[in-house]
Write a protein that binds this DNA or RNA. Structure first.
Lengths: 125, 125
DNA sequence: GCAATACCTAACAAAATTGTTAGTAAAGAG
DNA sequence: CTCTTTACTAACAATTTTGTTAGGTATTGC
């Protein structure tokens, strides 16, 4: 699905090489991703619980985002024993757990400037 | 250019409503954006300086990303007086300045897990 | 006049992301 | 045997993002 030799891909790789910041932003960039990570950290760690939190998401899209988060090492699928039908739990890895406070900082930053007018820093007034 | 009534747009708005986190991630998500913010914070605050830092970017793309960052209140275009041809400086707003440490945290988080194997947290072992 | 520099923009094309449709398995309930 | 639940997946279509081409303005230096 991805063209490895497109300018877009080449530029992406270039940025990944410049600084880890760019890979990190890439990991959290998908439409539902950061919200999914946050929801799992709050205990909504089953496919159905996530679907309830995100009422507009389709099964296919949720499954795809979860798989990508797994690929990036943010979470792991775990079988829940003795459940019928076989239940799956999504568990944040240490990497995923460490991401949560950063997401909270981003959220705080967003809130701080919600609906405010644009201001230059003091030093430039 | 944007379809306001597409499912994609509606879902985006829904997420913006759930938590500021999603708007915040949206602001830093574009291909070159977080790197541009970081570069400006390091003093590369002219169109040409940014082009040197990001050799693969085209004028059009750089201009577009700068304009979007301006729209989101991250930076401001400032005329540099008495320059020929008329110079423009990109100055981070207070919002932009406050974003930089969050980007640094994201970068640190990325570096911490670079190339490491996936690990569950201690409590799950 | 012609080139170079600095800073863009519109219109378009290519590529990537996101969403939809239609399915799968396995097991318990009725 | 059919319905329901949980947890998906493939193939495709719609939408959005990203990049390209081809320009523009204004000034200095030759």
């Amino acid at each position: 699905m991805r063209k490895e030799q497109s300018t877009n891909s080449i530029n992406e790789k270039f940025l990944f090489g410049v600084c880890e910041l760019n890979s990190a932003v890439n990991i959290i960039s998908g439409r539902w991703k950061s919200q999914i990570v946050y929801s799992i950290s709050e205990g909504n760690n089953r496919f159905n619980l996530l679907k309830k939190e995100l009422p507009n998401i389709s099964d296919q899209v949720l499954g795809r985002q979860l798989k990508e988060l797994e690929t990036h090492g943010i979470l792991i699928r775990q079988n829940i024993p003795d459940t019928v039908p076989a239940g799956i739990m999504y568990v944040l890895t240490q990497k995923g757990i460490d991401l949560v406070p950063v997401l909270k900082d981003l959220c705080e930053w967003g809130k701080r400037y919600e609906g405010k007018e644009i201001k230059l820093p003091e030093s430039n007034l």
